[in-house]
Every structure is written in C-alpha cells, then in structure tokens.
C-alpha cells in the first residue's frame, strides 16, 4: 500500500496531466454541445503542455544564463542550470493552441449562424433535412 502511495506521490505531475488528459478527451468525445467540446479540447491540449513543462523542473537550479563565481570565473557546471528547452517548446505549443482555439471558435460562430444551434444532435438533424 505504501509503495503504491509513494509511486503516485513521487510522480504526481504525471498523474495530474493524465487525469486532465482524460477529462479533456472525455469532453471532446462525449459532450453534445460543441462549445463543451472546444472546452474539452483546450483541457486536453493544456494537459499535454503541463506534462512537458513539468519535466523541466529542477529544484535549486538557476536560470540558464551563465553565472560567475565571486572570483569572476564562469560557472560551467551544467547541473546548476535549469533546462530552458521544455519551456521554450511549450511556449510555441501554447501559441499553436491559441490559434487552434481561435479557429475553432470562429467555426462555431459560423455553425451557429448556419444551423441555428450548437447542439450536435440538432445540427445533424438539420443537415439531414
């Protein structure tokens, strides 16, 4: 029991991402309202972003800018610095996510104008006519 507990606690960031991932996927697949589908999509994307950004965490590390010791020697110890790459990647991925959200909302507006509703079953019924 203790082992299982530590297994979950030690990697809590992965678990949190996994839970969010499934909440998002559930929303995208099961919900009937297209707006809720979009919310699901955003949660789903955010879960992945959190997952990748959380691997960049390093306790006690400093910003990845070259530091100098008191006698003006550069500190070349790689373990002293945090890895900036996950953050940079996620910054790009956030921008992509925002763009997708924008397009999705624009499409939703168009759907509402054409079909008069954003409920999926009503749209399908409207299209069958």
């Amino acid at each position: 029991m203790d082992e299982l507990f530590y297994f979950i606690i030690a990697k809590y960031n992965y678990w949190a991402a996994l839970v969010l991932l499934f909440i998002g996927l559930f929303g995208m697949i099961v919900k009937n309202n297209l707006m809720k589908k979009i919310i699901g999509m955003v949660i789903f994307q955010t879960a992945i972003l959190l997952f990748i950004v959380s691997i960049g965490v390093k306790r006690g590390a400093t910003v990845p800018i070259l530091q100098f010791s008191p006698d003006k020697q550069p500190l070349l110890d790689a373990t002293a610095y945090a890895n900036p790459l996950p953050h940079v990647l996620i910054l790009t991925a956030i921008v992509v996510g925002v763009a997708v959200l924008g397009v999705a909302l624009a499409l939703l507006q168009k759907i509402q104008r054409v079909h008069g509703t954003i409920e999926e079953d009503e749209i399908l019924e409207d299209m069958r006519k």
């Binding site: 589908k37 999509m41 994307q45 997708v100 499409l107 939703l108 759907i111 299209m127």
Partner: peptide, 18 residues
C-alpha cells in the same frame, strides 16, 4: 454544411497533433 464537417476535422486533427 462545410462548417460542421470542418469542425469535426478540427477536433480530430487536434487530437492527432496532440
């Protein structure tokens, strides 16, 4: 009808890319 079809493609495409 293209709007709804595109919306579904967007959902699937986003899942794929994610």
């Amino acid at each position: 009808k293209a709007y709804y079809a595109t919306f579904r493609y967007l959902m699937m495409g986003t899942i794929g890319a994610s």
